[in-house]
Design a protein around this nucleic acid. Structure first.
Lengths: 204, 204, 204, 204
DNA sequence: GATGAATGAGCTTTCATTCAT
DNA sequence: AATGAATGAAAGCTCATTCAT
């Protein structure tokens, strides 16, 4: 019974969980994980602390579920791009554009990934063994590279070298944008960056 | 007599400060800023908590001085490379090599920069207005780009786009290395990465 | 339902606050503000330190609320005397009697006023701007003087000169009583003192 | 040898002690006893903390010696008045004037007496058993009353009732002056207050 | 599901005093 | 006499989590 309803439609409880996560995500990414308290989250959600623990068993568990949620959102976007009938060069454009668009519209997703997930190992090593919290996203990125290599467009280099370039570069730019040191709006860098990335990855 | 020795050599108190910073740096970068307690630092230093505050007025102040220290170390390394009589292509090699070497030999310097400084804005916005905590390092990197553009080797692109590529890419790789997901030792990626960066930045 | 009970009777939390204040008041006035610790208060209340802060946001805030409480108790007593149908001479008797009675029965109220409130400016200047922490009490005393002047019984002198006499004299006696240097019980001084005050304030 | 020099002229050490006490007195009376730290005093004196303890064995000891000093200063002033060839009425004038003059010129003496000595029993009960820290001053005041009663000018009332009036009233006024709630300069209250006191104490 | 008072360990920081130099 | 680094107990306060209602 329960299994069916879970698969067909989100339950009321799942909806509530998601809306809690949105709020916690925003708090964590703007205020930091350790500086955001459980009462502060509960208050912003409009819920008592006690009841909060009916939805998430701990602060770490909440952090983990948020990361899973972000990974699924980004993974889904990448999946669409992968499935599209475009050239590798165009797909890179699309990925950069997509990433920056999210950074503009829902900056908390990227900030959380960069500032909370990547920087607080102690929280996620327990909850997210391996890379399972970001596997959705990583899977799609791997697919993109493999396809590019198979089609002969990209160099057959170590996956992680390419991943480091992609994520480091884009993350670095979003970070600088967040620091407000960039002289232009983020999206105006799209063309240059996509070009830089393509030049770095393509078969010379 | 005393005046002379003070100018020529660091005082005993300054020495002690530096050695405290080394220890705190290691703790912060492995355990995280908030999860590293003052008693834990004091204990590892072999000093009472009270005495600790004769050297650093607060935990935040300590965090700031550590960042200044790291910036000066990295800045000094870059300065040497900038002053060397090498081509831009070779300098990129040297920078990548230097960065990875530090990441291997003193990983805490890079980890601190990535995980503590970049990710805990709330700590540093008070103590390090603007970018003064990293200005040593940033200054030298700017110099490198400017020289490369003037010599006609590099594209005259936005400084921050180039900075994002450099720091994001290198930081991303070091991060992945720290996560132990890389299949090869970090230094084996040097050639590929330097090449990728050069391809991304050079005049095509 | 709840609204009604809230208006008619103090809530459980308010009751608890008051009983905490009573205990803290006693500790502060016997041990001093700085020598009374939060753990000591919590222990005497039979409560954890953490929970204490659910009732008062800080030690200073607690000190302030206690002063407000004392001022309201004294103000209420004065109000009754002011409203009574007695001569000025008799009212002075009543005030002196009332003051000494409180000093005997609940000495902590007076001690707190003299030793904590008046003597630790640094605590109250932040929390009690102006005289708002004692306005209840001051208001009634002003009323007493004004009435006495209007009825022609008292000299029309500066309010503060009269206030200084009243509070200084009574406070001084209570202080001496607390020091156990008085040769007689406090109440045996009532007649003399009331007479002294009347002689000092009346139209000669 | 030492005894002689001590009696004839203050030693260098005693001079230093006195000048330290002046500075500590000012700090205590403006900042409070517990909020003034030993390092803060030492710094203002221009001396190391360590050396400080060569002059005063503890903070409490310092507090006690300061009170003895103040008592001797006030006692000396009273002694002069007692010895003068004036009527009781005039002497009251002189005492009030003297008290307010000190309150204006060296307010820290009065503030210390009111706010530190009278309000922090826990400090002085150990160091100043009985009233030995203020005996200089009390002795002279007793003399004044006794003389007044013997000459037939003052009522033969309990000493402490009279003391309470005097010190409470004057202290109260100085306190109000310190609170900056008085509408006139302190000295303009002199006549009224001396009159009030005389009316309260004289044989009617 | 929902509330929020309650817990208590642990945090950063302070400070009178000591002591090697 | 003089220095100031060193001590360590204890302060005020926080916060994830629990539990009686």
């Amino acid at each position: 019974m329960e299994n069916i309803s879970e698969k067909l439609a989100p339950t009321k409880k799942e909806d509530r969980k998601t809306s809690i996560m949105q709020i916690a995500l925003k708090l964590f990414s703007t205020e930091g994980f350790y500086t955001t308290t459980m009462p502060a989250i509960a208050k912003k959600v409009g819920m008592s602390v006690g009841n909060f623990y009916n939805y998430f068993s701990s602060k770490d568990e909440l952090a983990k579920e948020i990361m899973l949620y972000i990974s699924s959102v980004l993974g889904e976007k990448l999946r669409e791009i992968n499935r599209s009938d475009k050239s590798v060069r165009e797909k890179i454009d699309m990925i950069v554009k997509m990433y920056f668009q999210i950074a503009q519209e829902r900056p908390e997703l990227i900030e959380y990934f960069l500032r909370i997930f990547l920087s607080n190992r102690e929280i996620f090593t327990k909850a997210c063994t391996g890379m399972i919290c970001v596997s959705d996203f990583i899977t799609e990125l791997t697919l993109f590279f493999d396809n590019g290599v198979q089609s002969g467009d990209l160099k057959d280099q170590d996956f992680f070298s390419a991943l480091g370039l992609f994520m480091g570069y884009l993350g670095g730019m979003v970070f600088l944008n967040g620091e407000e040191v960039l002289t232009k709006p983020l999206n105006e860098y799209e063309t240059t960056i996509a070009e830089n990335i393509y030049n770095a990855l393509r078969k010379q």
